[in-house]
């Protein structure tokens, strides 16, 4: 299997000298082509910092991030990000179609008409066919996040980074969106890296879960979720494999939280 992403000894500190706070303390893991990997850890362990470093949006203190062998120093070609805060990541002056087409800003050799057609197709893929003319403020939260997902898909990325994309939507929309993301990952053979604080979601979505420690954060262990690509909100969540993985991850995270000094829990 081809390795799409290789994170090696990644550290990140804020501040300098005696005041320096080490958030990430040497993280290493890999993501293979076509894999769906979840990263989960105790609150405040720097999951989003990690994801932003992989996206080339934050600098690293040491270590390396390689995308298909190429070191990442700035946002690389072939990585798309779906941010948690969809209300800020979409542009209210653009309708859904133009927001999605904007994801192709850096893809050369396409006419504006091609981009619009592709944008419509991507909206269709996230279940928003016919919503191209609607503006973000005319859509519900879940629909806005689907537009953001369509925009990420439109950029034809090697790796889709999902930064707690469903943290701000209601519970029912959330399970629908989990299935939508899984369906998209399969249909577009999209390699995905999901960062979430929700253990159930991490296990439900992933082929493999990377469990992080508390700060300074490292990888505690990884679990392969042997459930196949097809998941079901009811059956999968009752499957002993799911329950065992959930138990394992929950236990690790609870231990980290229990052992955490008071200031790290804030």
């Amino acid at each position: 299997m081809d390795i799409v992403l290789k994170v090696d000894g990644l550290t990140k500190s804020y501040g300098r000298g005696a005041d320096a706070v080490r958030v990430l303390g040497g993280i290493s893991f890999e993501v293979e082509q076509g894999e769906f990997v979840s990263v989960v850890g105790p609150s405040g362990c720097g999951k989003t910092t990690l994801l932003f470093a992989i996206a080339g949006l934050h600098s690293l203190t040491s270590g390396s991030v390689r995308l298909k062998g190429q070191p990442v120093t700035a946002p690389p070609k072939g990585v798309a990000v779906v941010f948690q805060d969809y209300s800020r990541s979409l542009f209210p002056w653009k309708n859904s179609r133009d927001n999605v087409a904007f994801g192709m800003a850096r893809i050369g050799g396409r006419s504006a008409a091609d981009k619009r057609a592709k944008a419509e197709a991507m909206l269709e893929a996230v279940g928003l066919g016919g919503f191209g003319d609607k503006y973000p403020w005319q859509l519900s939260g879940g629909m806005q996040q689907r537009v953001a997902i369509a925009r990420a898909l439109a950029s034809e990325s090697e790796l889709l980074l999902l930064d707690e994309p469903l943290a701000a939507v209601d519970a029912q929309t959330r399970s629908d969106m989990q299935d939508l993301l899984l369906d998209i990952a399969i249909r577009f053979r999209q390699t995905c890296l999901l960062v979430t604080h929700d253990v159930d979601e991490a296990v439900y979505m992933a082929d493999r879960v990377v469990v992080l420690t508390r700060r300074p954060t490292t990888v505690d262990h990884e679990i392969r979720i042997g459930l196949g690509k097809k998941r079901d909100q009811i059956a999968t969540r009752e499957n002993p494999v799911f329950l065992k993985a959930r138990h394992d991850v929950m236990t690790s995270i609870r231990n980290f939280r229990a052992g955490a000094p008071a200031n790290a829990l804030a």
Partner: peptide, 17 residues
């Protein structure tokens, strides 16, 4: 908001764009 800038960078827009 800093978010707008992060979206722009992740879409690999130039500074002018």
């Amino acid at each position: 908001h800093v978010m707008a800038n992060q979206v722009a960078r992740s879409l690999r827009l130039t500074r002018l764009e």
